[in-house]
Simulated assay, not measured.
Amino acid sequence: MKRIIIHLSLILFLISCFESGEEKQKEKENKETIFLTTLYLIRESGNCIKTDTTLTNNNRFCSRRPLGICSVNQLILTQSELNVILNEMRTIQNRTTDCQESILQSGILSLKATTALETENLKSKYTFQVAETCELEGFQTSASARFATFSEIQWLESARGKIAKGAKTIAANGFLPQANRDRANSCLQLEFKDWEKDLAQGNNENKILVEIVHP
């Protein structure tokens, strides 16, 4: 009987220890989740002011880029980032042949990874400041325009964004042969969603702005 009681007591003790450890683990995980969430929210907050130190006037530019990317890194294209753009371009090229001219128009094929020397030059040319909002710092868009959100900026700078803008540029150019414009429209119709086409057109027409200069 004593052995049974001892065994039961030992089992209950072990269960208690296990539960206590599990609770501690859950508490630790909750704290880590809260910390990571807070860190994410901080990194995604604010707007970014970029100053061109080589200019004396109209040298401050503001965008919806948040704190986490308000640095010279936004101007640098790494080789891995370039590879992502090129891979996405090839996917579109293989899937929608009518996008070929739009790809050429997009400028993707002329992109190059930023060199170490170019990075140093960019660091000496630009400074960056996080602001609560562009508007509070005196940056105002016209009534017919608005800032692009950070997610919209990311899309516009992606391969899809660049190609959609290229297609919109070709389609809107009345001096080009109709066949070229038809292929561009076909590219837009077959490859892009309505919101992508609207965003590309809005950016081309300066109605959706990645950044604006302080007047």
Results as ranks from 00 to 15, higher is better:
K2C: 09
K2F: 12
I5M: 13
H7V: 15
S9C: 12
S9P: 10
S9A: 15
I11V: 11
I11T: 09
L12E: 05
L14K: 03
F18R: 04
E19A: 14
G21S: 01
E22Y: 14
E23P: 08
K26V: 12
K26E: 07
K28F: 14
E29G: 03
K31E: 06
K31L: 14
T33F: 11
F35I: 10
T37K: 10
T37G: 06
T37D: 12
I42Y: 09
R43D: 14
G46K: 10
G46M: 04
G46W: 02
C48Q: 05
T51M: 05
D52G: 03
T53C: 07
T54L: 11
T54D: 03
L55G: 05
N57Q: 10
N58V: 05
F61R: 02
F61V: 02
R64F: 06
V72D: 12
V72K: 05
Q74Y: 08
L77K: 10
T78G: 10
L82R: 11
L82P: 01
I85G: 04
L86G: 03
L86H: 07
N87S: 10
E88I: 07
I92D: 01
T96R: 03
T97A: 10
I103G: 00
I103Q: 00
L104C: 02
I108V: 08
I108N: 08
L111W: 03
A113K: 08
T115C: 13
L117G: 02
L117T: 07
E118W: 00
T119Y: 03
N121Y: 12
K125V: 05
Y126F: 13
T127N: 07
V130F: 06
V130P: 03
V130M: 05
A131K: 02
E132Y: 11
E132A: 08
T133M: 01
T133G: 08
E137Y: 13
G138W: 09
F139T: 01
Q140K: 15
Q140R: 11
T141A: 00
T141E: 01
T141W: 04
R146A: 01
T149Y: 03
F150D: 10
I153E: 00
W155G: 05
R160S: 06
G161R: 00
K162A: 14
G166W: 04
T169F: 07
T169P: 01
I170P: 05
I170E: 07
A171V: 08
A172L: 13
N180V: 09
D182G: 07
R183I: 02
A184Q: 00
S186R: 14
S186C: 04
C187L: 03
C187E: 00
Q189H: 13
K193Y: 13
W195R: 09
K197G: 08
A200C: 13
Q201E: 12
Q201A: 13
G202K: 09
G202H: 09
N204Y: 09
N204H: 04
E205Q: 15
N206Q: 06
L209N: 09
L209A: 01
E211F: 12
E211A: 11
E211Q: 15
